[in-house]
Design a protein around this nucleic acid. Sequence first.
DNA 1: CGTAATTTTGACTCCGCTCAATTGGCGTGG
DNA 2: CCACGCCAATTGAGCGGAGTCAAAATTACG
Lengths: 255, 255
Amino acid sequence: MQAVIALKPLRKERFMNQQVAHKHEINCSSCNLRELCLPGGVCVEDLEQVQNIVYARRRVKRGESLFATGDEFTSVYAIRSGFFKTSVVDGEGREQVTGFCMGGELLGMEGIGSGKHSSTAIALEDSEVCVMPYSLVESMAHDYPQLQRHLHSVLSREIVRDHGVMMLLGSMRAEERLAAFLSNLSKRFVRRGYSQSDFHLRMTREEIGSYLGLKLETVSRLFSQFQKDGLLEVEQKHVRIVDIGGLEKILCNTK
Amino acid sequence: MQAVIALKPLRKERFMNQQVAHKHEINCSSCNLRELCLPGGVCVEDLEQVQNIVYARRRVKRGESLFATGDEFTSVYAIRSGFFKTSVVDGEGREQVTGFCMGGELLGMEGIGSGKHSSTAIALEDSEVCVMPYSLVESMAHDYPQLQRHLHSVLSREIVRDHGVMMLLGSMRAEERLAAFLSNLSKRFVRRGYSQSDFHLRMTREEIGSYLGLKLETVSRLFSQFQKDGLLEVEQKHVRIVDIGGLEKILCNTK
DNA sequence: CGTAATTTTGACTCCGCTCAATTGGCGTGG
DNA sequence: CCACGCCAATTGAGCGGAGTCAAAATTACG
């Protein structure tokens, strides 16, 4: 009911040029990523209504962008499947990867403040996202305080995450950075039911390097070194963490 | 009216052990930082009510903390006067300065997600903040959509700011980092009616270094070098930007 | 299947760090 | 008021970690 009212000002055509799934196929209730996602804190009774926040689904092929710097901000996105990198560019065209995102995580919220996206999200594998128009998010947040609170939480946690990256970039040495990166990836895969030790890196060495403030050669050397030290088994993009304790120990070695 | 209702669940005593000013002394209408602050987007008619979001004022002496890592999150803070640094610490006790905040800027929002503060805010000079209990912020945001939107904006802009710091830490060389830092400070001082070229650094070289991912000696050397190059005049904590164009040019020199 | 992209590895360089000594500023107390 | 001590800042010398450049190997993909 609320959702229908809120939909009115939306121009459906805006989304028509994109590959979208129809609304009626969508429901959060049966989505196994729900707890990680925007409707995370919403009680079951309200979910029926709240899931109307998802206006559509959209497929993004590997290499394509979900949104890019300068694009008008209209929606935030929840990753339903797939993997993305987000990055910003400065005046000189230097790219800085700001994050890697996987199922259940939200993208695009950086655009709220200015009405334009300040970063670019590129799919690193064929992906699908739930499109949540911001005007809908606003009105839903108004109607469902649990959603409002959870939205604030999500925004706030993104800030905390960014602080972690600052710590990594500002205070850690190269091997600590890579260890922290792998440990973080591992934890996030586990939450999604994947192996904690065995995974496929969707990003290149260069993208890892950009994220970690290192050159791709350094990343490559570190992978080799970690393998030599018996911490990992690396074969191209496939990584197997052999000694997770050893990895975490690197993070503790002050100096 | 709304505010009174919202105040009910708050336990007044919680704030009583802190140095606070009484509520009736407070109003945003006459605050010259309003446009930069949380009530920024709110229309004049609503301001009368919205300013009740400020539950109290609190003074923080130089060197004291406004909140610290692990503290229970209850409120967000708007800086009314003074200057703060925020920082996070990792498992090994390493400190990473995540930002410097001045009048009109908001502090403490990183705590929303977990209910506890994940960083520490320390006053670098005697300061005064407006205390805005989060429960009040929530209910006010519900009653005043302009406030809700602006709150989202503020959170989102903090994320964008953090991305800028990541760019700085991940992709810039030492002299670019310091130039970007000074240029940013200058811009923020201007907005507050201070000189764009002449200012007093409230933080130490070590704190600048932590923020920029550099050692204090490097920061010191860069100050000396910038002075030698005729970009700055530095005398201890007092900085005069002689050639702002030259500073910005450093940021453009891709290399 | 061939071309381009990615990754690995080596040799060398250099920017920023470490260690150390010195100077300067400032508050405190004699 | 000055002496003292403490902390912040400066500067130098030497080092080392990560960057740069280059070449080869491997893989991905049209």
